[in-house]
Amino acid sequence: MVKPEKRARRRWFGWVAGARIACAIGALAQLAPAFRVHAAQVVPAAGEYELKAAFLFNFIKFTEWPADESNKSDEPFVIGVLGKDPFGGALDKVTEGETIHSRKIVVRRFTRIDDLAASSPIVFISVSEERNLDAILKLLDGQAVLTVSEIASFAERGGIVELKKDGNRIVFEINLSAVKRAGLNMNAQLLKLAKVVRGRS
């Protein structure tokens, strides 16, 4: 005879798998026999890049940089955007007046890799830079820089966070070995939400 508790757990696992699919197609969560979890279909009222700008800002909050980066408390915290800026001012709007550990947030845009100063702890690599991606990643390799991009297979190719669209939801993949190489520390809550991928080392 199966204990009720055990039965519930089995159903729970079954439900997890089902829910994943349901989420993927943007449907409502399924009913589970023992209990029901309802994940509301949050239709983003904002535009896609407004959400992505918020995500970019939130990534900073769930990431810890090595000590030498955290020590620069008197300098502004620079968010670098490399290549053609897809946000159209949304990033400036999201970060306006915000601080990270009392550091003012400044958005800087770069067009060339060489301009990319080591002073940016986080860099968004625009789709326009897809051609130079390997060079860019090579340049930033070993530095405490959180790289974020929409470029397909960005995480697999050695980037850290890859933003993707899943229906009308925004999801992200994280390359843990890249996180490790950059000497960053990512919050478990964030990792729980991400699809963790193994990329090239």
């Binding site: 309802h38 939130n58 909050k61 939400l193």
Partner: peptide, 23 residues
């Protein structure tokens, strides 16, 4: 506390899982 990230990254599915712990 455990749902903060799910709200920030708009992940109601994981939020639902977190709530499921109440069973």
């Amino acid at each position: 506390y455990n749902s903060a990230a799910t709200i920030l990254f708009i992940d109601p599915h994981t939020a639902g899982e977190t709530l499921g712990a109440l069973r």
